[in-house]
């Protein structure tokens, strides 16, 4: 519907993200940029399930924790390099998402919401208590950074270039999927499962595919995060973390790739700017979700589309149609 706007928006956001380090190389800011890149991947992952397929799945953090841990275990305990561990991590998370996706997608609405939050608790219980395998409450230390050629990527700045490249590729991939017949199938199932089935779309398989895509994307995010931090421990993964990703997606724009990218970028940076609010910033997040849901259900990306439409004088006027679909 807004293909041109979408592509321009994505190009602008990524251009800004890529050139920012030229102007600002303060170590803390570079670290935040790294987190921006990782959060973008995670929110895009959530977008596949919640935005494209329309399933209220709250278990992304569970996948994320598993991805971080599998990269850590593979590199630290089994001596793989970062680049060897990434494909294995993705295989692990996508198989898990397949296993989880197949039976649970029969569940609808709030049943899936409960089941997926249960999934987080189960994952966390295992991470905390299976000491011999996961390192228990102490987590895993000394996760290596990736090599490029023969040089170890030590600085956060260089790591950022790897992270943002991967993020950009994944964003392009997500856009390609959105435009493919799978993307159309996702949205058909989301908007009206019954009629989509009459059109010959296998709604079950479509949803499973959304799950697997989510697993693959969280696999990337987890690998990057574990390597960036150098350590993982179970208390990093909380239910509230899940809520922040959901907030990023809703505020950016449910069901829109640039929306996910924009939401993750803006809110990750805002969180850092709002650190003076300290423990109160989650209150702000919660309010933000509700306000955006009520007053701009398409997220801030709809306004960005309008501005881009005007700047580049594109023909198709933003209509209400997109918003209704999102709701």
């Amino acid at each position: 519907m807004f293909k041109k706007e979408r592509n321009i928006a994505l190009a602008i956001i990524f251009l800004i993200l890529i050139i920012t380090p030229i102007f600002d190389r303060a170590p803390y800011h570079i670290f935040v940029l790294n987190m921006v890149a990782i959060n973008i991947i995670l929110v895009m992952a959530l977008n596949f399930i919640l935005g494209f397929a329309g399933q209220v799945f709250l278990g992304t953090v569970g996948f994320y924790a598993i991805a971080c841990y599998s990269t850590s275990l593979l590199t630290v305990n089994y001596g793989l390099s970062f680049w060897q561990a990434v494909p294995f991590t993705i295989i692990v998370t996508s198989i898990l998402s397949l296993i989880l996706g197949l039976p649970t997608l029969k569940l609808k609405g709030f049943y899936l919401a409960l089941m997926s939050s249960g999934f987080i608790y189960i994952v966390l219980d295992i991470l905390r208590n299976w000491k011999s395998f996961t390192g228990g409450v102490w987590g895993i230390m000394g996760i290596p950074r990736p090599f490029i050629g023969t040089t170890l990527v030590r600085s956060d700045l260089h790591f950022y270039f790897i992270a943002i490249t991967i993020t950009l590729c994944l964003a392009i991939f997500a856009v390609l999927i959105e435009d493919s017949k799978f993307g159309r199938a996702f949205k058909a199932v989301r908007d009206d499962q019954l009629s989509s089935e009459m059109l010959g779309i296998n709604s079950h398989m479509t949803k499973v595919l959304a799950f697997v895509m989510c697993g693959i994307y969280t696999g990337f995010a987890g690998s990057l995060f574990a390597s960036l931090q150098g350590f993982v421990s179970p208390e990093m993964y909380t239910f509230e973390l899940n809520a922040t990703y959901m907030c990023m997606l809703v505020v950016g724009g449910l069901g829109s790739v640039p929306g996910a990218v924009l939401g993750a970028t803006v809110l990750t940076i805002t969180t850092e700017l709002l650190r003076f609010l300290r423990e109160k910033y989650l209150t702000f997040y919660a309010l933000l979700i509700i306000i955006v849901l009520i007053y701009m259900p398409g997220g801030i990306i709809t306004y960005v589309y309008q501005i881009i439409g005007r700047l580049f004088s594109l023909k198709n006027k933003p209509s209400q149609k997109e918003e209704i679909n999102v709701r």
């Binding site: 919640l50 209220v56 609405g109 809520a243 809703v250 309010l287 979700i289 509700i290 849901l293 259900p297």
Partner: peptide
């Protein structure tokens, strides 16, 4: 699904 997300945010 929108209602569910809103209620989740309300709980938070």
């Amino acid at each position: 699904r929108t209602k569910l997300v809103a209620l989740l945010a309300l709980s938070m």
